[in-house]
């Protein structure tokens, strides 16, 4: 299984943000992209293009405005190798998205200091080697419009800032 994890900003991961100490590792700002809640990290199942679109729309609905969205695809086996468990117990939260699609949400669970580090060590080279994707602002708008037209988004439940940005 592939899991899509959003990166809040590309340049945090490209290694230019200096850590001025002996033997620096991944910078703290990149780790901040792996901010947990309840020791969980939110991801979305993304085994094919259709699921990838659902994940992108879900993430876009959680934002204030349509802007580029960068993400990596995590591999279930690799996560298993670094002893990170995946849970499907919690539905995703994405204002207005069809309830059934929220079931595609997956949490990486029971994350502690050690496992956040392992995850960062997994993601960091992946990003630097170019194994990430960028969805443009235009593509985001087109996807959101397409989901809306297919009645997969209830506009009344979409966050007001995003609605304003999209002129919905």
């Amino acid at each position: 299984m592939k899991l899509l994890r959003m990166l809040s900003s590309l340049e945090r991961w490209d290694g230019h943000r200096d850590v001025n100490r002996k033997n620096p590792t991944i910078c703290g700002d990149a780790i901040a992209d792996l901010r947990t809640s309840n020791n969980c990290l939110s991801t979305w199942r993304s085994n094919d293009e259709n699921e990838k679109d659902i994940a992108i729309v879900a993430l876009a609905l959680g934002r204030d405005k349509a802007e580029k969205l960068c993400f990596v695809l995590l591999d279930e086996n690799e996560l298993h190798n670094i002893e990170i468990e995946i849970s499907d117990k919690c539905k995703g939260r994405a204002g207005g998205l069809n309830e059934e699609l929220l079931n595609n949400h997956r949490d990486l669970i029971e994350l502690d200091y050690n496992h956040i580090g392992k995850l960062a060590n997994y993601i960091s080279p992946m990003v630097r080697e170019g194994h990430f994707e960028v969805v443009t602002k235009l593509q985001i708008k087109e996807l959101l419009t397409s989901f809306k037209e297919r009645n997969l988004i209830d506009v009344t439940k979409v966050n007001d800032n995003l609605k304003h940005d999209l002129s919905w």
Binding site: W13, D14, H16, V127, V134
Partner: peptide
Amino acid sequence: ISSPLIQRYANVVVLE
């Protein structure tokens, strides 16, 4: 563009 990551983003935008 100095960073390969940002270059990748730039390429996507240029293409579009």
